[in-house]
Simulated scan of single mutants.
Amino acid sequence: MGRIAETFARLKKQGRKALVPFVTAGDPDMKTTETLLHSLVENGADVIELGIPFSDPMADGPTIQAASERALAGGVTLGAILQLVSRVRQHTSTPIVLMGYFNPVLRYGIDAFAEDAAAAGVDGLLLVDLPPEEAGEIHGALRRRQINLITLLAPTSPPERRRQLAAAGEGYLYYVSMTGVTGTQHVDPQAIAADVAELRRESRVPVAVGFGITSPSDAEAVAAFADAVVVGSALVKIIAEYGKSPELPERVAEFIAALRQAVDRAA
């Protein structure tokens, strides 16, 4: 059993839901990202999604796009991100999922990436622009290294496709709470609760909900019916606001701790 499965099994036994924060690697710089990753763990993150900066994102709104631009301007590479994961892995068993787009992985080399990611301690990969029908090669390479290929599922997915994705899911399913890009709309828990409940019945892995979760109250509402809550743009906004200020780690810690308490209240 991998770290992702172990984490969700432990939380289920405890009657708790998972908190999954997202940060962009290298925003504002790699040293700060490393500090923040440790802070996320210390303040209650169960799984970390670490964004791979990309110049042409299709699912990310202005907040995460800007974070990618800052990271790329600082010279962040996929190789440097894997080195970062390797350093962080020496101090924590918290699952780390890389999230991004297919081009950087393809350029790195699919088999080389899978090998190096496994050696670094990566637990999962989520590629926003790679449909399952075209993921055969990378899926095989990851599976041989016990790395989960995380699947995205949209509210507009037809019922048959939902069932197919739910049956094939690894690690967890990432349910996108709305149409559109990240950080531009506000989640409506009542509008998606029934869909997520149905998906949880169909899926053999836990269901995480992301996009539009901006506050502890949002997190609490979504945790009432989902297995995990993903918070990205709201956290990235804090990083953008404070940048390299000495106050940044404290502000991030406060926000994550508040989310943790909110998610636990819903359990």
Score class of each variant (00 low, 15 high):
L149A: 11
I150V: 13
A141K: 09
T151W: 04
P132R: 03
G136T: 15
S157H: 01
P158F: 11
I147C: 04
G136E: 13
Y108A: 13
H139V: 02
D111T: 15
P159T: 11
V176S: 03
E160K: 03
V176I: 13
A120K: 08
R162Q: 13
S157R: 01
Y175Q: 05
A119D: 10
E115C: 13
A168L: 05
R144E: 15
A119L: 09
A135N: 05
R163Q: 07
P155G: 05
Y108Q: 13
L153T: 15
E133G: 08
V128E: 10
L126D: 05
R162M: 10
R144G: 15
I138L: 11
E134L: 15
E115T: 15
I150G: 02
L152Y: 03
F113T: 12
P132E: 10
L173T: 02
I110H: 05
A114C: 12
D111V: 15
D111E: 15
R107I: 15
S157V: 06
I147D: 00
L165I: 14
A135T: 10
P131L: 10
A119I: 12
L152N: 04
D111W: 11
T156Q: 09
G136Q: 07
Q164K: 01
G169Q: 01
G136P: 03
N148I: 01
R162D: 03
G169L: 04
A120C: 12
T156L: 06
R144S: 15
P159Q: 09
P158H: 07
Y174M: 11
D111R: 12
G169P: 02
P131R: 04
T156Y: 02
A112Y: 06
Y174D: 06
A117T: 11
D123N: 15
Q164W: 04
V122G: 05
D123S: 14
E170H: 05
T151D: 10
Y174F: 14
G140M: 00
A168D: 10
V122D: 08
E170A: 13
I138A: 03
G169K: 02
L126A: 14
A120M: 05
V122P: 07
